[in-house]
Simulated scan of single mutants.
Amino acid sequence: MSDEGTALPPAQKSSWGSFLKSLASFSGDLSGLTAPSFILAPFSLTEFPSYWGEPKDFFAAIADGKTAEERHLLVTRWFLSTLSGQFTRREKETGSEKKPFNPFLGEQFLGSWDNGELVLHVEQVSHHPPITAYHLENKKKGIVYEGNCAQKTSFSARQISVKQVGHGLLRVKLPSGETETYLITLPKLKIEGLWTGRPYVELTETSYIQASHGLTSTIKYSGAGWVSGTSHSHSTTVTSGAGGPTLYTLTGTWTGETKYAKPSRDGKEGQVFFDASSDAMRTRVDVKPVEEQNEFESRRAWKAVADGIRSGDYDSASQAKSALENAERQRRKDEQARGETFQLRLFDKRPNDPEYKQLAHALKFKPEEEDSWVLKTSAA
């Protein structure tokens, strides 16, 4: 790593030091802490579900699997292939990790790929706690991925720890008319490099993919330690049920090559499962021009803030950010005064989703109580 502060503009080093001090003294969830504009990314957290759709060909290929085992491997490949875009792109493009805007209640992000063959709907369905709901659908292939995500963030041991709360359910409609479902849990992450001025993300602990046909993918994440280890590493096992016999082991990095390792069926040991470093694997989402977006769409709502960040005019970015956030606070106060409750426009809440509970139970650990959100028929 480089010397402290070398990734920061000279004029911002003092502000960065003040921000680190505020981190160290802050108690509770860091989502409530205001970050200085120069460490913000010029987009909102509502854009993050677009990373699920960027490996669009991998997503579409899931429906082409001939057997449950083959489809399970294709789901696992797609999920792993989304991680590099989600967690290392901003570092590569800007020199360090940047914090996205905290979405306002009802904020939307709408996009598509391949002239609408793959479509994404996103809405901020809760502000306290902050929860983002998403629905990604390829109607031609009969594949839907919908879910929700929130973050619980804390500071300790010179790093920021982020627990991603939520889950996704991927459904594949089979030629027989039956539907196969996959529960996808989310990895935890830590943001390191704060004291060098070059924040970056490393994934930690374990996430799972549990299929309705019984197969389970267990993904264990690890990084570089003081003595050994490789950044962005994972070891993934595919088993016949949680704790069952291992069918495949996949090892590598979620930013580079992942290969089959022993045990592996069909003599695939050493073969490349996929290569996440290939830029051709990912295609960015298409979004309507800002002037054609509705007032709740993310890029229109945050345009003045994003323009200030991109131009380096952090004062104007901060002023525009404060104006938007103050206007949202006033809307909530006005609703409360009228005895009204905010109504979501794109999603409906599904409390205690039985499908989620059934698949989570198959993982043989007690999951947190989680609600689900489903896309309204009128929004599809």
Rank of each mutant, 00 (worst) to 15 (best):
V162H: 10
G166D: 02
H167N: 13
G168A: 09
L169K: 07
L169D: 04
L170E: 00
L170F: 02
L170S: 05
L170H: 10
K173N: 13
K173S: 13
P175R: 02
P175W: 07
G177P: 04
G177S: 04
E178S: 15
E178I: 10
T179S: 13
T181C: 14
T181P: 03
I184V: 14
I184Y: 06
T185K: 09
T185R: 12
P187K: 02
P187Y: 03
K188I: 00
L189R: 10
L189Y: 07
L189G: 02
K190I: 13
K190H: 06
E192G: 11
L194W: 15
L194E: 13
L194V: 14
W195N: 14
T196D: 12
T196R: 14
R198S: 15
P199S: 14
Y200E: 09
V201G: 01
V201F: 12
E202L: 05
T204N: 00
T204G: 00
E205R: 00
E205D: 15
E205N: 12
T206V: 14
T206Y: 05
S207V: 11
S207W: 03
Y208E: 09
I209A: 03
I209Y: 07
Q210G: 02
S212W: 12
G214L: 01
G214H: 03
L215G: 08
L215N: 13
T216G: 07
T218P: 03
T218W: 02
T218F: 03
T218K: 11
I219T: 08
K220M: 09
K220N: 10
Y221V: 02
Y221A: 00
G223W: 01
G223Q: 09
A224F: 12
W226V: 11
V227Y: 11
S228F: 15
S228V: 14
G229L: 04
G229F: 02
G229S: 06
T230Q: 13
T230R: 15
S231W: 01
H232M: 01
H232T: 05
S233D: 06
H234K: 08
S235M: 00
T236Y: 04
T236D: 04
T237G: 05
T237Y: 05
T237V: 13
S240L: 12
G241K: 04
G243F: 09
G244M: 07
G244P: 12
G244S: 05
P245A: 07
T246H: 10
Y248F: 13
Y248M: 04
T249W: 05
T249M: 09
T249Q: 12
T249K: 09
L250A: 03
L250E: 01
T251S: 04
G252T: 11
W254C: 09
W254L: 08
T255G: 03
T255Y: 08
T258H: 00
Y260A: 06
A261S: 15
A261N: 08
R265S: 04
R265I: 07
R265V: 03
D266L: 06
D266F: 06
D266C: 02
G267V: 01
G267H: 06
G267W: 05
E269T: 11
E269R: 00
E269C: 01
G270C: 01
G270R: 02
G270N: 01
Q271Y: 09
V272T: 14
F273D: 04
F273T: 01
F274A: 05
F274S: 07
F274N: 03
D275S: 03
A276N: 08
A276C: 08
S277M: 10
